[in-house]
Amino acid sequence: MIVAEQKDIAEIIPMTEGYQNILVIGCDTCVTVCLAGGAKEVAILACSLRLAARARGKKVQVDEISIERQCEKEFVDSLQSTVRGHDLLISMGCGIGVQTIAEQFPNLAVVPALNTKLLGLPERQGVWVERCQACGQCILDKTGGICPISRCSKSLLNGPCGGSQNGKCEINKEIDCGWHLIYERLKSLGRLGCLEEIMPAKDWSRSRNGGPRKVIREDMCL
């Protein structure tokens, strides 16, 4: 699932500067499930923007709607009549949603209300962890179903670095060493042989660092 998190309202308010008729569009799929851009969040954002405008002595019209999936042109097209009369669309979808809307309504300003963070799963209510980096070349078959690209902080392909200690990552002691997990899993599967195969270097177009990322919504953690 795509995990996103809402931008700080202080960042969204300036985006609406100068617009009179705003439509906040939610998405009923991934971002609803990760509690960032569903019907509930749309209502909160729309109301917040109305209040923010009035607190600044302005009056704006903010309408709200939520559609099945913003990443599908057909669903976005169904907004044709709704967007009429609006001069700004705020997408509460993931980055793809924003772009699909922008593509379908080329004459309207579209801005994002979310930061699309990662592909992951909820570890528990209110905490999401990264499990996939969409690297485009899945090797989970060789690693016992544990992804070294996302679970190893350095995305190493051929075993752990020297910093792995007691099964924990040297970047952060809270994080499990991805390669330690892979080793343990393969051992229990009786397939340690997999590790002998040397994996060729991956072609990284961009470098990255910082290890697996995490989204935590403090107010949802209970």
Partner: peptide, 12 residues
């Protein structure tokens, strides 16, 4: 029809 089966209710 609206339920996204996010499991939030079940968990909370």
């Amino acid at each position: 029809d609206k339920c996204a089966l996010c499991l939030t209710c079940i968990r909370t």
